[in-house]
């Protein structure tokens, strides 16, 4: 693998909620190489979106952050838009409704590439064409509401890649779209990332979406990484009991017939709890006393390993 582009060490993020603290991330170690495509998979409350915001440097002011975030390949100052692009879940909310899409893409080019507006206009049209918007010259002047949800997500992607960043961060970019559009957007992202040699960090709750696009999958549970590995290994031979359960549920939904579907039983962790052992222990069929008392150490390679007491090394 090539050089490390992004490195998180022991990243912990807490957000105050009233008098309590929501522990969104409880010590996350993560590496991303240049050109690598990594899916960060987790359910709501797993901290996956917080991780993305932390990487992008967009956490709310009141967040308490420990640990480190480094971009070894980039300069000391990492600028959003120039060094990384960001695609969010809701394409209706992430575009400015009063500016034309050409102005919004052009702005990125002017700000980060020092382009003049006349050049920016031409380049914006090229970008629109590249993300699959027909008749780009004419549509540059249209405001976002003239486009469908899927088209808006394409425009958001065009903005994110406009400055030619080395990293693309995407937070559930397809989960508000229907499956047909979803599959088109995933194909688009896949193609763009390959062509430009960008690294991709895709946050999603859907393992099937992750499997479409990622080289490597990292599974988050209650603010910690429970397993990480090459996509083909993790999907075919999952090691952590949570990954296994999640896959079993997803597979059951794919072939469902008569009878109830597989469920992951048991209570989820209160996000304000301090946690001693493994957060999945209360729901884990393999849990022993040690699991609730002692935090499981990472076993194996940083890029292919698991945090579980019960997995034999």
């Amino acid at each position: 693998m090539s050089a490390v582009l992004l490195e998180l060490r022991g990243l912990a993020v807490s957000l105050p909620l009233g008098r309590r603290l929501v522990r969104a991330l409880r010590g996350l170690d993560l590496e991303l190489s240049a050109g690598e495509r990594l899916a960060l998979v987790g359910e709501s409350g797993s901290g996956k979106s917080t991780a993305l915001l932390a990487i992008a440097g967009l956490l709310p002011e009141e967040a308490r952050v420990e640990g480190s975030r480094r971009f070894p390949l980039l300069g000391r100052e990492v600028v959003p838009g120039r060094d990384f692009g960001l695609v969010l879940q809701d394409p209706f909310a992430s575009l400015n409704p009063v500016l034309s899409v050409g102005e919004q893409i052009g702005e990125v080019l002017v700000a980060h590439r020092g382009a003049r507006w006349s050049e920016a206009r031409r380049a914006s049209a090229v970008l629109l064409e590249r993300v699959g918007i027909g008749d780009p010259e004419r549509r540059l002047g249209d405001p976002p509401h003239r486009f469908s949800g899927g088209q808006r997500q394409r425009i958001a992607i065009a903005m994110a890649i406009a400055a030619g960043p080395r990293l693309l961060l995407a937070d559930e970019p397809t989960s508000s779209l229907d499956t047909v559009v979803q599959s088109q957007i995933l194909a688009l992202l896949d193609g763009l990332v390959r062509e430009q040699g960008m690294a991709l960090l895709l946050v999603t709750h859907d393992l099937a979406v992750a499997s479409r696009i990622a080289d490597r999958i990292a599974v988050l549970y209650a603010g910690r990484l429970v397993e990480s590995g090459p996509a083909h290994r993790l999907l075919r031979a999952p090691r952590h009991p949570y990954t296994r359960a999640l896959l079993a549920v997803a597979r059951d939904l794919e072939r469902a017939g008569a009878g109830p579907l597989a469920e992951i039983a048991g209570p989820t962790l209160d996000p304000t709890d301090r946690m001693q052992g493994c957060a999945f222990a209360p729901r884990c069929p393999f849990a022993v006393a040690r699991c609730t008392d002692e935090r499981p150490a990472w076993r194996g390679h940083p890029r292919d390993g698991v945090a579980c007491h019960r997995v034999e090394p």
Binding site: T179, S183, R236, A250, R251, E254
Partner: peptide
């Protein structure tokens, strides 16, 4: 065709 599906679960 668009439905996202997991690869089959044979051991790698």
């Amino acid at each position: 065709a668009a439905e996202p599906r997991l690869p089959p679960p044979e051991p790698d």
